[in-house]
């Protein structure tokens, strides 16, 4: 990904900053300009998520994309935050420890790098809570 494309959403990636539609009381991560439920009647506000949730499903990636530095195998999961939204993220744990439904907590981690001289991606991963 190009530097501007990653940089543009830095604060959202680093801090789990998303949005909340106060019309229907639905939370979104990543942030959205339009609430898919209310569309033009929605009122969107910025929202800082607590970072706690549960693991909905997972896989153990053996063949990672080239820009992901994590040592394969790594656990990738879909986390459902307690406020409702779901996101795809790496789960820092031993592959044998992972199970559907386990409680997780967000942490700030390095997630990849372009090359030895290139941009380093930081963002959110999750650990067992």
């Amino acid at each position: 990904m190009t530097v501007p494309r990653f940089w543009r959403k830095l604060k959202h990636r680093y801090n789990l900053l998303g949005t909340h539609c106060t019309t229907c009381d639905t939370y979104y991560y990543p942030p959205r300009k339009i609430c898919p439920k209310c569309r033009r009647t929605g009122k969107i506000q910025s929202h800082q998520f607590k970072g706690e949730g549960k693991l909905l499903t997972y896989t153990i990636i053996q063949n990672p994309p080239e820009k992901i530095t994590a040592q394969a195998p790594y656990v990738l999961g879909i986390v459902e935050l307690d406020e409702g939204p779901r996101l795809t993220s790496q789960i820092i744990c031993h592959p044998e420890e992972v199970e559907i439904g386990m409680r997780v907590q967000s942490v700030f981690r390095k997630i990849g790098e372009e090359s030895a001289q290139g941009m380093i991606y930081y963002g959110t991963k999750f650990v067992k809570n």
Binding site: M1, Y58, I61, L76, G112
Partner: peptide, 25 residues
């Protein structure tokens, strides 16, 4: 979604694997 799936370490086999894992569960 490159920004919110790909960059997080998702591959296509990985996405379908997460579907498979939940279907099995």
């Amino acid at each position: 979604d490159r920004e919110w799936e790909g960059i997080m370490g998702a591959t296509f086999p990985g996405l379908y694997a997460m579907i498979a894992r939940l279907h099995m569960h």
